[in-house]
Amino acid sequence: MKLVIDPRRCKGCNLCVKVCPYRIFRPGRRPNERGVVVPELDRPERCANCRLRRLYGRTICGVCQLTCPDQAIRWEEEEAYEPRKVAVEY
């Protein structure tokens, strides 16, 4: 599972920054095209839900999603491993 912030919904209130016990969110630095400073994710793979949702079959923690007043936080299924193209420099 991959944690994402929907930049079209986020209003930049930073409440996610406040409530995540793992401090995965931190205040963003630059406004996006809507003028909103969307928080940045700091090693989101540490998120309890990312790690454990599949194992338990339900949302684990999820406090950021429940708190986010603008329904901007969600988890996406990660695509199966795809070999990344590596630009090989000769």
């Binding site: 079209r8 919904r9 209003k11 930049g12 209130c13 930073n14 409440l15 007043p69 603008d70 329904q71 901007a72």
Partner: peptide, 8 residues
């Protein structure tokens, strides 16, 4: 969405 509510 998003709602009309203010930031935060």
């Amino acid at each position: 969405l998003p709602t009309i509510f203010c930031v935060g």
